[in-house]
């Protein structure tokens, strides 16, 4: 680089970055601390910034007094299946949109982009009525189908960006060697694009794992609830039990946090390459 940083610039940089880090991490820290306090001590002053004694009572209560284990499994199942199917379907549509010029291509892209701008809530009521007709209300299959649909547009746009970074000589060579287009896609392109595909899958997974309003609308029985629906149930009761709430929050965030930590680089690539290009 050309100019060396001055001492002043360096100090202000460290202070700024340090502050940002503390402010970003603090809510997570606080929720972890709250979840580890014994239920009674949460509501006592002065506040303890570290629990006087660690207690896992909130976590144990979550699994013994509520069906949190079931909710977690439901979320895992729904998010995994929906993210997998959505990624596969988007792979095909993104391939077409990235590689071929056809009339109406712009319209297809616009139709996908539009779904990202329109508040989904306009469709909430009609969707509920449609799902009632299909007999898919309060059904994991129903929720999975809807999640696949909401993941596809953005996933397609994101994957299209990755396809455009891969030269098409690759699959052409494979097709000259006798591969069908589909097998060329999966045998040649998919391995090359694996980071991008993984990022898209993770992005879908986290979106489904976190999705709230559709699941609140469509799911109501305890055996089918996903985590966000259950958490929403926590606040509808008048007094919120912040101990179990915090424990539930930690259990919800940790899996996505772990995944993001590993994949953040690819996701950033995907978002900045695929999304902004539009």
């Amino acid at each position: 680089m050309i100019n060396k940083e001055t001492a002043l610039a360096r100090t202000s940089k460290i202070i700024f970055l340090g502050l940002c880090l503390i402010v970003t991490i603090f809510p997570l820290y606080w929720i972890v601390v709250t979840s580890l306090k014994a239920p009674g001590t949460i509501y006592s002053l002065p506040l303890d910034y570290w629990p006087k004694e660690l207690s896992f009572e909130n976590y144990i209560g979550l699994f013994t007094k509520s069906d949190f284990g079931v909710y977690m499994l439901n979320s895992l199942l729904v998010a995994t299946v929906a993210a997998t199917v959505a990624t596969l379907i988007s792979l095909l549509s993104a391939y077409v949109l990235a590689r071929f010029q056809f009339s109406g291509r712009g319209w297809v892209l616009a139709a996908f982009l539009l779904t990202q701008m329109i508040p989904g809530f306009i469709a909430l009521g009609p969707l509920y009525m449609m799902m009632t007709n299909f007999n898919l209300v309060d059904s994991k299959t129903g929720l999975i189908l809807v999640y696949i649909a909401i993941c596809i547009p953005f996933c397609t746009i994101m994957l299209r960006g990755f396809f455009e970074n891969v030269p098409d000589a690759l699959e052409e060579a494979a097709m000259i060697d006798g591969c069908s287009r589909l097998s060329a896609l999966f045998r040649v392109l998919v391995p090359v694009m694996m980071p991008g595909i993984a990022a898209s899958f993770i992005f879908n997974f986290v979106n489904c794992w976190n999705e709230l309003f559709l699941s609140v609308t469509l799911m109501n029985s305890d055996e089918n609830k996903t985590i966000p629906t259950a958490l929403a149930g926590f606040i509808s009761s008048f007094n919120i039990d912040w101990g179990s709430m915090s424990a539930a929050a930690v259990l919800t965030v940790v899996p996505t946090l772990v995944i993001f930590a590993f994949a953040s680089k690819f996701i950033v690539q995907g978002l900045t390459a695929g999304a902004v290009k539009g």
Partner: peptide, 13 residues
């Protein structure tokens, strides 16, 4: 992709 988005997004919309 078209079928999914059509049925579950555009139709309700």
């Amino acid at each position: 992709a078209a079928i999914f988005v059509g049925i579950f997004t555009y139709y309700p919309m």
